[in-house]
Design a protein around this nucleic acid. Structure first.
Lengths: 214, 214
DNA sequence: GCTAATTTGCTTGACATCCAGCAAGTTATA
DNA sequence: TATAACTTGCTGGATGTCAAGCAAATTAGC
């Protein structure tokens, strides 16, 4: 035990408090959703009083929006990076490996993002905006891939279906990592699963949509 | 307007009340999640007082569990039906068309089920049990398909990956029907989309995993 | 078959809990 | 000392649960 009863001298730093609150709120909102979290809980986790989140962010909705803003900008950046790497690749397989691999890596590494998006999707998704980041990024990736496609025979409806399929293949297992994967005897944290997943998706799409034999 | 001010004579019928409450609760829990719904709201929608749901079901959690029980049994029945039809099919394409088509039809026709499962997945999914219905059904379907597979070359890890992929391809678009599909300019209620989705998934899986040329 | 006794269906009121937001107070820091 | 960075007290509203009450339906006794 420390000799002091007061937990810590605690210097004042608005910036530190703000981001501590954002971190705590992101984690808690991701875990329990907007309704399941209170200012008291967020304050406790951030090491401030229950009034401080309101002091800095005004209201609970505004704090929630700030959390979404921050994490969506991070997502935008990382996904754009993966898309950039994919655009430089030389073959369809490399495009898919870089693009989808990067997308899967991001999803696997940011469970808070996945959960926040899932919560928003269930609420009707007003906060997702009209054009979610990852949809646009996927479409950009597909546009890059199109260069390798025979120009005829690929209807635009197929491209939309392909977009949906790529997102589902990458996103779905991590959206259900706590229920689906354990039910299949898979440890979601196992890095081998990540590798296997990426390989499987790339092969499936490559052969299924581009007709390449492995 | 009716001559009576009292809204309706309302005969007393426990069975009717119970199922009216279950219906209302299913719809509301699916829409807003467990925390987002109150007894008052459920009662209003079911045409009873705010106390009646508690009277019949004991507590809010028990009502919620009753809702899940009922809808999961329905799901089990319908998915088993589709799996049965698939098992009778004569070729891999027909197996996939019957099995995945039936699965997609069920998902598209039961948005409440999808939303309840998604809510449960976000909560950690205790109520989903260890072996969710659709996982087992999908695995049964895959077992049926295995008859057509070359016995070598299909590792069990690939079968798990395939299970994940099939579920993701079918489930994902309807779990995000309010956000993803509109962002792609697709009307989730459009029956043409359903047809196109089924065809796309079957072709993708057939060529991607079974190596058949269309 | 008529009426009294009992059960069942359902409503209303009360209570304890929780929570977001505001306002007033307090302390650090520039 | 002035202002920003907090904390604490308070309040009104919402909500789950329970107990009491009442009326309709059912059963039992005659």
């Amino acid at each position: 035990m420390s000799s002091k009863l007061a937990p810590a001298p605690k210097t004042r730093d608005a910036g530190r408090s703000r981001s501590a609150i954002l971190d705590a709120a992101e984690e808690l909102f991701a875990q329990k959703g907007f309704d399941g979290v209170s200012f008291a809980e967020i304050g406790k986790r951030a090491g401030v009083s229950r009034g401080t989140p309101g002091y800095f962010f005004g209201s609970k909705v505004e704090l929630y929006e700030a959390v979404l803003d921050r994490i969506f900008q991070t997502a935008l950046r990382e996904i754009a990076l993966a898309a950039g790497r994919a655009a430089q690749a030389a073959s369809p397989r490399e495009v898919l490996a870089a693009g989808l691999g990067g997308y899967i890596d991001f999803i696997a590494g940011n469970p808070n993002f996945v959960r926040l998006v899932e919560h928003e999707a269930l609420k009707g998704g007003g906060a997702l905006g009209e054009n979610p980041v990852h949809v646009r990024a996927l479409e950009a990736g597909i546009a890059a891939i199109q260069a390798y496609l025979p120009p005829e025979g690929v209807a635009s409806t197929d491209l939309k279906q392909l977009t949906i399929s790529l997102m589902g293949l990458c996103w779905f297992p991590f959206a259900h990592r706590q229920t689906l994967l354990p039910a299949l005897g898979i440890d979601p944290g196992d890095p081998e699963f990540l590798v296997a997943r990426k390989k499987h998706v790339v092969e499936l799409v490559l052969r299924g949509f581009f007709g390449k034999e492995a």
